[in-house]
């Protein structure tokens, strides 16, 4: 199994109310799913916006690892390496905090 990696998570504006306004935060995890778990532990409420009750990425949400959509890789099982960037973007444009 891959070991834990420290990665940067890029937070879109509508989710920054959970991260005290931070646009990027650092978490550790071996996979995208682990990183989302770690994100939720630090910023409760964020994971249910990203994943549904069955733990799958919501259909309107895209997750990118270094710019590549994880749907084209292994979804939430996509492995992470130290220094990776994990981006969270709603599938389409939306409003944000002014």
């Amino acid at each position: 199994m891959a070991s834990e990696s420290t990665v940067q998570v890029l937070i879109p504006t509508p989710l920054r109310r959970f991260t005290d306004g931070e646009s990027r935060v650092e978490v550790s995890g071996a996979t995208v799913g682990d990183a989302l778990d770690a994100l939720e532990a630090r910023f409760p409420g964020i994971d249910e916006r990203v994943r549904d009750d069955s733990g799958q990425i919501r259909r309107f949400v895209n997750l990118f690892v270094n710019g590549q959509n994880v749907r084209d890789r292994d979804g939430i099982a996509t492995p992470l390496s130290p220094g990776d960037e994990l981006g969270i973007i709603p599938a389409m444009a939306g409003g944000s905090a002014a």
Partner: peptide, 14 residues
């Protein structure tokens, strides 16, 4: 606020 309905605005946060 975090949604996927393109073109729509969540007015309380936009």
């Amino acid at each position: 606020a975090f949604h996927g309905i393109e073109g729509l605005k969540h007015l309380p946060t936009a």
